[in-house]
Design a protein around this nucleic acid. Structure first.
Lengths: 339, 339
DNA sequence: CTGAAAGCGCTTACAG
DNA sequence: CTGAAAGCGCTTACAG
C-alpha cells in the first residue's frame, strides 16, 4: 500500500527489530518466535513490503530463474508444451526467462550469453540444439541444460524426446498392414535429431519387410516446403498411395494441398503425421498421427533439470518416451488392426 | 573459458587495474582509454568474464526485465503475438519473464506479486485484466502496465487493442450487403472488453439498418462452447443465414460443427470470424474475418510501455488500431463489394 | 581518464 | 530465538 521502495531495514525499524529478524520471517524454515513473526508481518503489511528477489538471488546464488529458449511458435506443438512447461515450473517456485531464437548458432549464442548474465539456475531449449562451444560455456558456468524435443548425441546434454525411431517404425508397419505399396515420406528437418530418427525408424521398418520409401523429401518442418513436396509427389507418373509426414504441422499443409488437388484422402492416399497436436483431432483434418506425450515429456524435462540443479553430480539423462499411434480418418485402417 | 564465478574484481586484478575501470569497459558510453579497454578486455576474455546482470540491476535500479502475463496459448492469436512481442523486446535489450495465469484474480495476484518481487521494469498482460487493487500495487511500485488485446476503462492502465467496435460494425454491414437477413452472433466472452466491443459495434450497425441479431450466444472464447452454440442455432425452427463469431479460434470450431452437420458454407450460412490468425487463410477453413494487425499492435504495446518506463509522467494511452475485413470463402461476397 | 569508497537489499554464519 | 556484522557483484558520485 505504499512506496514501492520499502526494504527489510524499513520494516525492521518500524517493527523495532533487527533486519535479520525480518529476513527470517520471510525465509521459509527459519526459526522465529510467534511474537516476532506477528510483529514483523504487521509492520511489513503496513508498509507493503515485499522481499527483493534479485537481492536474494545475489546472496544465495540461486535466482530461481530458468532460461527457456524456443525457436518456433507457429508449430502448434510448442505453444502447448510451453504452457505446460511454465505451469510445471511455476508450481515448483521457478520463474521463466523466455527467449525466441531463430535456429542459428549466432542468435543462440547471444541468447545463452544473456541467460548466463542473468544467472539462471538452468536452461531448457525447445527444438533448439547447442553448439559444443555453447554447451561448454554452460557447463563451465555450472548451469545444467536440458533439450526438450531434440537430442544431441555426444553433447553431454540431457535430452527428452519421444521414442522417435520406434514411432517411425510404427507408422511404417501400420501403412504396410494397410496394404500400401508406394509409400513416400515428407520427412522432418534432417538437420534435427527428431527428423532423422523418425525417418530412420520408418525406413528401417520398411526394409524389414523388403521395402523402400518410393520417395523421400525433406519438408524442413515448414508448411510451404511440405505442401510443395506433396504437389510434386502427386505430379509424378506413379504417385504414392501413402505419405508419412514428419510432423502434424506439415501434415496439415499436405492435407490442404491434397484437397486443393482433389486427391481423396485416404481414398487415393493415406496421410500420417507425428505429434498429435490438438488440431489433429479437429473434424477438418482428422489426422492419423503418432502422439508425442507432451505432459510426460514436460514432466521429465522439469524433473531432470531440477535434479541437476539440486545435485550437480546428477548424471546426464537421455530420456525417450513412447507414444501410441492415434488412428483417425486420414489413413486407411487395416482390417482388425491392433497396435 | 573458465570457472563461471569470475567477478569484475578478478578481472581487475588480472589486468592490474581497478574494479571501476572494468565496470566502465562493460558500460556502454562510459569513458575509458583505448589502452585501458584493451587491457581489460584481454583479461576478461581470458577469464571468461561476463557482468552479472542481477548485480547491475540492483545497483542501477533497472532490471531490464519485462513481465509478461498470458492467459491462453491455445488460441493461435497469442503464440504469434508472443513471438513478435519477444522479438521486439529482445531487440531493445529487454528480457521477458513469462507467466501463464488462468484468468482468475487469485492466480493473477500471485503472478503480479512475483513480478514485483523480481523488480521488473514493466508489465504486459495479454488477454488478462487487472483488478483495481493489483493495478494500484503496480502503480505504487512505479511499474507501468500495458494491456495487450484487452481494454479496461477506468483502470488507469494503458491498453492496445484493435478497433473492435468498428470491426464489429464492418462485419454487420458486410453481411447486410450480402443480403443476409437472419444474422446470429456467437459472441466473444462478454466478461472481456474485446468480446463486448465487437458485439456492441456489430449490434449497433445492424440497428442502424433497422435490424437485430436473430440470436446471440456467448461463446466464451471456447471451442466447445462455440461448437455447441452453432449446433443449437442450426437446430432451431428458423436457423440463421449468417453467423458472426467473436474470434477465429471459435470460428474454426463453428466451421467444423457445420461441416459435421452437413450445412454448406457459405451456401446455407455465411461465417465471419475475428483476428485473421494464419490458419484462417488455410484451405480447410478459408475464413472471412476481421484482421487484428498484430505487428502494429505489438509495436504500439512495446513503444507505449518503454515510453512509460523511461518517463514516469508519460500519460496513460488507450490505443485502438483499425484492421480490414479480409474476404475469403466462408461468407457470401456482395456483388461489387468495396470495403 | 582512473581509483578508492560507499552502497543497492538482502542472507547467513557467528555470538549471545 | 535474536542481533551485529560481513559480504554477494556490481555502479557511481567524488577526487585526483
Amino acid at each position: 500500500m505504499s512506496d514501492g521502495k520499502v526494504t527489510s531495514l524499513d520494516v525492521a525499524r518500524a517493527a523495532g527489530v533487527s533486519q535479520s529478524a525480518v529476513s527470517r520471517v520471510f525465509t521459509p524454515g527459519a526459526s522465529v518466535s510467534k511474537t516476532m513473526e506477528a510483529k514483523v508481518r504487521k509492520a511489513a503489511d503496513a508498509l507493503g513490503y515485499r522481499p527483493n528477489s534479485l537481492a536474494r538471488a545475489m546472496i544465495t546464488g540461486k535466482s530461481r530463474i530458468i532460461g527457456l529458449v524456443v525457436a518456433y511458435l507457429d508449430n502448434p506443438f510448442y505453444p502447448v508444451a510451453l504452457e505446460r512447461l511454465s505451469h510445471a515450473l511455476q508450481e515448483r517456485g521457478y520463474h521463466i526467462l523466455i527467449f525466441m531464437a531463430n535456429n542459428t548458432q549466432e542468435a543462440i549464442a547471444q541468447v545463452v550469453d544473456d541467460l548466463l548474465a542473468y544467472q539462471v539456475d538452468g536452461i531448457i531449449t525447445a527444438s533448439v540444439s547447442l553448439s559444443g562451444d555453447l554447451a561448454a560455456q554452460c557447463a563451465s558456468a555450472g548451469i545444467p541444460v536440458v533439450l526438450f524435443n531434440r537430442g544431441q548425441p555426444g553433447s553431454g546434454l540431457s535430452s527428452i524426446t519421444s521414442a522417435n525411431v520406434e514411432g517411425g517404425g510404427k507408422v511404417a508397419r501400420f501403412l504396410l498392414e494397410g496394404g500400401h505399396r508406394r509409400i513416400a515420406q515428407i520427412a522432418g528437418w534432417q538437420g534435427s535429431s527428431t527428423g532423422q530418427d523418425r525417418s530412420r525408424g520408418f525406413v528401417a521398418a520398411l526394409q524389414e519387410h523388403g521395402m523402400e520409401p518410393c520417395a523421400t523429401i525433406d519438408g524442413m518442418y515448414d508448411r510451404d516446403t511440405a505442401a510443395q513436396a506433396a504437389r510434386s509427389l502427386m505430379a509424378g507418373a506413379d504417385p504414392p498411395d501413402a505419405i508419412f509426414v514428419g510432423n502434424d504441422h506439415m501434415a496439415f499443409a499436405v492435407l490442404d494441398a491434397l484437397r486443393a488437388l482433389g486427391v481423396p484422402v485416404p481414398g487415393a492416399v493415406s496421410v500420417v503425421g507425428y505429434d498429435d497436436v490438438p488440431m489433429a483431432g479437429w473434424a477438418s483434418y482428422d489426422l492419423t498421427t503418432v502422439r508425442q506425450p507432451v505432459n510426460r515429456m514436460v514432466e521429465a524435462t522439469v524433473e531432470t533439470l531440477l535434479a541437476q540443479i539440486e545435485d550437480a553430480d546428477r548424471p546426464v539423462q537421455k530420456i525417450e518416451i513412447d507414444g501410441p499411434l492415434i488412428l483417425r480418418g486420414s489413413a486407411r485402417i487395416p482390417e482388425g488392426y491392433k497396435q
